[in-house]
Every structure is written in structure tokens, then in C-alpha cells.
Nucleic acid binder design. Structure first.
Lengths: 259, 259
DNA sequence: AATGACTGTTGCCCATGACGCAACATTATG
DNA sequence: CATAATGTTGCGTCATGGGCAACAGTCATT
């Protein structure tokens, strides 16, 4: 066959194409059938039929009849059940909420998805200054406390795979070399928590600690974040230990299906 | 062909099967290949290959090698972009948060998905700590203020389609007849807002108003909810108008793709 | 208004890719 | 240790997905 864009391990062509459509829509927001067809290098009609299949299950919806498509609310419904079946997130509300009130800052839970950090749950702190909602958003690991935590305890091979593609220098403090990054990860392993001090954007500070499963594997990161004016470097150690303690409470829980 | 479980309009068999797998996993939490195969009445090998395709794109993940499957975090990532591209939700935080502070109650945004009400965004009020727990959860329309709002302005045909399958009597106040329900919807159209007074569960009251798009179509519902001890029937009218006002602020915004 | 270029959708028919079979590798269970 | 589960994988066939082209609406230009 001509264009074998098939991802490794994915053996069902039409399904893979349908899922790539979802990814494209996630990036582009809205897209027409023709645009998708040319992107995937398939025929209009094929794309149209794939869209119908996705639409029938509510994963995409078209704006008007015979119009463009975008992702559908069915995805929200599916995603809602994801977090509840994940041990790191399910039943975590008591802990995260208590943490948010204790430190007065926004609390997040994040996992590693490929080489990006994906925020899967969030509690916004009492402050008036609301950061944007991060749920479902992903960021590179090298400039975030969560990214450092999720990378630090990986075996060397996976750690390389989890590195960012490009070491974008987002602020003066951003780490942009492999050696400095590895040194930072070693420090994270030693301390048991990670700090990102204005490394992703100015005036934005975060502190994260690992959530582990029953086998002591790091499966997620618990994170607090806020403006530099409230989270000062003198408080890093105290806050680090508080986050570590909360993360420990969330650790060691076995997986369960639906609860 | 033997078992034509194909949903109306879905013309690609393998894609439809893959999406049904996602729905099954959403219900069951975890499932093995064999269980899925018997559920869909397909062969183990087929199910296994479909799972591989889903896994390659991160929509499902298996717990251990050669183990069971569950929904994956890729769904969270996809769902995260859904709300931001929906006009009713994107940029709504300012309004919802202000409303939550004004009335001191939890604020939700919901949309209609088939014949269920799907909560797509939430701000919890009284504690001044925002969190998302209903996200992705759905409830029947006949016992909720959001459901009434989302049904009230539908054309008669769609209104029938949006009716619940079973009129479960969840509390003494639950509406359980079509005629009473239609009368209630007429009242909602007249008032411009809906009330659910302990109709889903005891001590739980909600008030909702419609969010409209630029063509005045109702695309979502804005809702406040809280215990009956705080939201008394004497306040329904005042609160109804407040919710209506906030909903108007969220209305009329054109769709945009990615912003 | 009428034209033209653009959408997305749909029957048709062929070949391709998805499916069922069965043998395999593993892990749980007695 | 044996038995019975599980999930995975080559293989061959036939259903089925996909390319073609005609169709039907929509928008922009004239």
C-alpha cells in the first residue's frame, strides 16, 4: 500500500484514521471534510464516512447541516469516567481540596502522556487571581514542576523518551540543556519534590511531588501553583514537604474499576 | 450480515465497533478483551486488534502487559479542547465565577446529549474553592432544572426524542407523566428559567436558564444548585432572574475554532 | 439573480483490509 | 503440576471499506 502512516502497533486502518481525525480536530478546533481528507491523504468520501461514524457516537458534531466538524461533547462524557477509574485521581478530592485550602493555591494532578505533561484534575484555590483552567491541557516537562516529578523516577531509557522535542526557552529561568536537566532531576529525586520557579512563564511558580501506586511506581504528580508574589523561595522547602505529605496520602492505592 | 448493531448513519463498521468499546469501558471501568468480544459479539482477535488501535492513540491503556484495558488519558486531552472550542463554555469562567460568588452556590453549565443532560463545566461556590466533580456526568432531563431548560425550547419532535426512557420517580416531587412534564416546560418557556425543587434528590434544589447562540438557539443551560435549606421557594423568582441575567451574558457569542 | 467554484454526501463496484479461525505464549487457579 | 483461563499473532477468505464520479446544497463573485 502507498502511504503507510499507521502508527506502531495499530493494526486497524480505518480506526486509526478515525482517531487521527480526532487529534486533528483537537489541534485545529474546526475542520471540514475536504481539509481532513487532504491532511490524511485519503479521499473526501472516506473522510466523510469516518466523520459519520464518529458523529453517530457523539465524538464529533457538525456545526450546521452539511457544515464543518468539531469535537463533540461525547468526549467530555467519556473523559469524565476516565479520572474516576484512575487510582491517582479517584477519591482524591478530599486530599486535593484540603491541600488547596491549606496552602491557598491552585492544586493540580498531572500524568505523563508521551513526552508531555497532561493535567487531569484541578482544584482552583481561594485566591481572586484565577489562573486559566488547565484540565486536558498539556505542557512540556522541562519547565514544569510536574514534568520534573514525572520524569525524575523513570528508568534512563524512558527518561530520554520523555524529554521535550525542543528545549524552548520560555523565561530566563528555563532549563535548556540536557545536563542541567538531568542534574535538576537528580535534585528532585533527592528532595522528593520539584520546584519550577518562573521557568514556564514569568511570575508563575509551582511545586510538585510524586503520587505512587502500590508498586511504588510514580503514576502521577500532585502540584500547587501560584504567583511568585505569594510563593517565595523561602517557602519552597515548607511547601515542598506539605505537597509531599498530601501526595503520600494519595499513593499506594490499588487500581479499581468503577466506584 | 448477521448482527447489525450499527447505529443509524454510522457506515464504517470497525470504527463504530471501536467507539462502542470506548462506551463499554466508560460504563464498566475495566474490561478484558474476551469480555468485550462477547459483548460486541465479535471474535477475540478482532477485539484485540481494535484495542491495539485505540491504545496506539492513547484512548485506552492496559493495566499490565497482556492485561485488562481501561480508558486512557488521551481522552482527557481531547476533551480538554472540546470545552474551549464551544462557545457556551469558552471564556465563561468570569461569568460563572461571578455568579457563584453572588449567590454563594454551585454553578454548572450543561448541554443536551441525546436524552441526557451532560455537565460540561462547574464552579463550586460557598467554599470559594472551585472544583470539578460533575464533569462528564449525565442525568435524566425530567428531574433537573438544566434538563427542563434544554428541552423547553426544542421543537416538538426533538422534545420527544429528548424525553427520558424511564420516568424514574426519584423523590416525591419528581415529575413522572408526559402531560405534567409538558406543562412544566410551558411554564419554563413563559418564565425564562426552570426550577427543580427536590425533584432529583431530597434537599437538592436547582435553578437554570438558557444560554443561546447567535441564532437564539438554546445550546446550553446555566444552573445554580444547593440545599433546600439555603435555596427557599420564596427566593426562586429572584434567583431565577439572576441566573437568567448571567445566562444572557454568555449568550449570542459566535462559534470559534481554536483561540 | 444567475453563474461558478466550492463544499459535504451518496450509490456503485472493485480490491483491499478487516475479520474469524486456530495455534501460540502467558498468567492465574485448582 | 495440570488445567483453564487470558491476550496476541500468522493466515486465508470474504465481507467491507474506500476510491471514483455524479449529486446537492452554500457561498462569493459578477
Amino acid at each position: 500500500m502507498g502511504n503507510s502512516h499507521l502508527i506502531e502497533g495499530s493494526s486497524v486502518q480505518s480506526v486509526d484514521r478515525a482517531l487521527r481525525i480526532l487529534e486533528i480536530l483537537a489541534e485545529q478546533g474546526e475542520y471540514g471534510v475536504t481539509e481532513i481528507a487532504s491532511e490524511l491523504e485519503i479521499h473526501k468520501s472516506t473522510a466523510s464516512r469516518l466523520m459519520s461514524a464518529l458523529q453517530a457516537r457523539g465524538l464529533v458534531e457538525q456545526l450546521s447541516d452539511r457544515g464543518r466538524y468539531r469535537l463533540g461533547m461525547g468526549l467530555v462524557r467519556l473523559a469524565g469516567t476516565v479520572t474516576s477509574s484512575h487510582s491517582a485521581v479517584s477519591g482524591s478530592r478530599t486530599v486535593t481540596r484540603a491541600l488547596a485550602q491549606e496552602v491557598g493555591e491552585t492544586v493540580n494532578i498531572a500524568v505523563l502522556e508521551g513526552n508531555e505533561v497532561l493535567y487531569v484534575d484541578q482544584v482552583i484555590g481561594p485566591s481572586m487571581v484565577t489562573m486559566r483552567s488547565w484540565l486536558g491541557k498539556s505542557v512540556p516537562p522541562h519547565c514544569t514542576a510536574t514534568g520534573k516529578v514525572l520524569s525524575a523516577w523513570l528508568d534512563p531509557e524512558s527518561r530520554v523518551a520523555a524529554r521535550p522535542h525542543t528545549w524552548a526557552k520560555l523565561t530566563p529561568n528555563t532549563i535548556t540543556s540536557v545536563s542541567a536537566y538531568e542534574a535538576e532531576l537528580a535534585k528532585v529525586r533527592e528532595l522528593g519534590y520539584a520546584v519550577a520557579n518562573e521557568e514556564m512563564e514569568n511570575d508563575f511558580v509551582a511545586i510538585a511531588a510524586p503520587i505512587r501506586d502500590e508498586h511504588d511506581e510514580v503514576i502521577a504528580a500532585l502540584c500547587i501553583s501560584g504567583p511568585a508574589s505569594r510563593i517565595k523561595s523561602a517557602d519552597f522547602e515548607t511547601l515542598g514537604h506539605i505537597v509531599k505529605l498530601s501526595a503520600t496520602k494519595l499513593s499506594g492505592k490499588p487500581d479499581f474499576g468503577r466506584e
